Simulated scan of single mutants.
Amino acid sequence: MDPDTVAALRAQGGIDGAIDADGRVPHGSSDDPELLDFSANTNPTTPPGVTGVFEDAFDRARSYPDDGYPEFREAAAAFVDCEPGQVVPTAGGLEAIRLAIQTTVRAGDAVLVPRPSFGEYAREIRLQGAEPAFVAHDDLLDADPEPYALTIVCNPNNPTGETAAPDALRSFADRCRDAGTTLLVDEAFLGFTDDPSLAGREGVVVARSLTKLFGLPGVRMGYAVGTGDHLERLVTARRAWSMSTAAAAVGTHCYGQTAFVDRTRERVDRERERMRERLRTRFGVAPSDAPFLLLSVSDTDVDALLTEAREAGIALRDARTFRGLDRHVRVAVRTPADNDRLLEALAV
């Protein structure tokens, strides 16, 4: 990207500055056992049999895992409807995102990034010496991809929660391909919906995580999906033994639990709508297809609301750390009993 374009984007507020001094992006999740955690968007339940699978993997963990991960690749490919050879296992979805950016972006490139959205995109782009150029998340599919080495779509978007219209997303993917611009689609929450994955589409790299849908963030299960030259670069750059023996076994098991996935989707759809109806009596509530809701706190101080919830034993996600949000919190959709506690604590 030429210096004049970079300068123009900075002047418009479209390119962020350098990495913050601590180099880290704020995330949800509370380690306080006294708090009911609504700040992280992971499933509060896990698939049946997963504990036994994890324990059974212990003895096999005394040897290196099979670096081909054939069973995991087969299971992941069946879930997203692609070829097993297109699946590149990683230690979580974030590693898949980093792998996609590392193999696509060079110093001086510009990358189109939605806002507000997952903060790690900008961090990973800057680590490559490239520049994130921000556009409103709901305008991104109308943007011209040609000036960018990479465009990123978060589907459903975090923290707002809405999915991209499938036809519009496929059309944008085609425009990116025609422009020679790689499209990275982060599908970390897409498993909570019935929408199709873009896995296996030419010119697209998909990043997937099992963390959210199966409620196991500490196991670190994820993968990228690519085709053609993108796939070759992903395979070449992937670390050897990129998933642990336990992660590969648990991930393979989880993707076979179709009844669990169906129950999870039904519960999240039902509870999200129930929560929205109650919460909208006090807050603005963004439309969502994901296991979380973004609340606009127009008449209440955000810090006071966070404190109010914490005093009731509940952790909320301070959404002011997302670019462009200044009076917002995000709440997960959990079990009916947990959600009742939240609604009571927020007096709605």
Rank of each mutant, 00 (worst) to 15 (best):
P156T: 13
V185L: 14
T252H: 05
Y148M: 03
P287S: 14
H137Q: 14
R62T: 14
Y255H: 14
G313S: 03
V53H: 00
R175C: 03
Q257P: 01
F322S: 04
W241N: 13
L213P: 13
Y148Q: 01
A315H: 07
F283W: 05
P33E: 04
A75F: 04
G13F: 13
R341S: 12
A57M: 11
G108N: 03
P196K: 08
P47H: 00
R272C: 06
D318L: 07
T151I: 00
A319G: 07
D59T: 11
L184R: 12
N41L: 13
A149G: 03
T281I: 06
R317D: 15
G17T: 11
A309S: 11
A76S: 11
T103P: 11
T46R: 14
R272N: 02
G28D: 07
F322P: 09
Q128N: 09
F58S: 01
L346V: 10
V206D: 07
L234Y: 06
L293R: 10
H230E: 08
F118V: 07
I314N: 05
A107K: 02
A207G: 14
G119A: 14
D81M: 03
N339E: 02
A77W: 05
A304W: 00
G324T: 06
P287F: 10
A188K: 06
A11K: 09
T300I: 11
